[in-house]
Design a protein around this nucleic acid. Sequence first.
DNA 1: CGTATTCTTGACTTATATCAATGTCGGTGG
DNA 2: CCACCGACATTGATATAAGTCAAGAATACG
Lengths: 231, 231
Amino acid sequence: MKIDPTVLKSLPLFDRMSDRDLNAMLEHAVSRRVMPGDAVFEQGAPAKSFFLLLHGRLKVTQVTPDGQQIIVRMVHPGDLFGFAMALQRADYPGTAIAAAESLTLAWPTEMWSRFVEQNPRLAVTAMQTIGQRLEEAHTRIREMSTEEVERRVAHAVLRLSRQAGKQVDTGIRIDFPISRQDIAEMTGTTLHTVSRILSAWEARGIVEGGRQKLTICDPQKLLNLADRARS
Amino acid sequence: MKIDPTVLKSLPLFDRMSDRDLNAMLEHAVSRRVMPGDAVFEQGAPAKSFFLLLHGRLKVTQVTPDGQQIIVRMVHPGDLFGFAMALQRADYPGTAIAAAESLTLAWPTEMWSRFVEQNPRLAVTAMQTIGQRLEEAHTRIREMSTEEVERRVAHAVLRLSRQAGKQVDTGIRIDFPISRQDIAEMTGTTLHTVSRILSAWEARGIVEGGRQKLTICDPQKLLNLADRARS
DNA sequence: CGTATTCTTGACTTATATCAATGTCGGTGG
DNA sequence: CCACCGACATTGATATAAGTCAAGAATACG
């Protein structure tokens, strides 16, 4: 595998790791390019590997028994994903699909406990990562319990702009293709409602929409919507 | 501290630990009795300790900036709780309140990393614990996104009966005082709606209510409500 | 007992889903 | 290069689940 170790070194997850350990890890890694719409792994499949996203953007989805889909989270460059073994289960709880062309690094599941036991520091860092994810999940539960749809969408869009925002001339552009349906699945609503909300915002000059595109023109107004109730 | 090590030994979290390590941990532990309504720690307070619940029942709550409360999770005997340090934060993200008289064991936060580094096995187990919690959170998000209130309440009640159910003559009784308001805060709805739902179920012989009481008489019917949509 | 929670129930309102068209974009192939 | 197709988006009309408002009743507790 020809992966530049300095790329990994820049990630908080690995920055405390020695060069020797890092190279040992890379020895076992397999990289793979994933095209938009392709799955890295599927819900329910045996968890043969765990992954690191080097470049691109993934969405992790789950489908309910009756066929409804939700987006569990977005995976951004530098994120570990698909470590089902940490959850003590043999299969992946969700499906990881590329939203944009992506580059992943994969390790065999068996290596996880070896790496962790050899390198307790990695264990601590990994735990903090899951902890953060748990906190994000609680935030989402809190929002879904207490906020009406418009505020939830405002929060979701603001998060996206922080995690995947790219400065362009008219504002901050979400840097990967995202549909109304996607936003609906992230906030627990329908694409119709999202469409109406974004249309209203566009009329007020807060955002600029488009087919699988979204640009935030006035982050301040969006923050107001998200924080104070009923504007 | 006079705590019987065999009690801890029976918990999955500690069963692989040597007697020596276990005793070393207990050396630093402080036990405390908590009366119903009392808080073990408060949201936003500095995370001085992490805890283990030996006996009783706690609810972990969060309040939103505008004063609405939600129940993040219930803590059952044997559960670790309040380990904010794993989330890499210095304060508690929620408040832990005793629902019934409880007995907790507390360690100073600083000890966590020491224990973990001395005992990698503990790290792995702890990570699995957080992982399970993450999965529970995702389940809740999925339910809140796709299910109507009655099914969510059904799922919540079934979970309670699994985690805190006690066989009594008329069915399975939730073994701690729980109000309609509590169930509402666990499912993202209002106490009115919960009350109506429980009344309807009582009329159908599925449950038996009461002030801060709840008994499941017909788990099968409840499962039907939870699984199949619109009965 | 009386006082304070907790619970129930009815009437009304509203946010949001659902149903149903129609419009628009962007890529593919003729 | 244009035309067409499929995916995505918009928007109106209507339905409805669940929230809000408002009393009252039941239960526990001091």
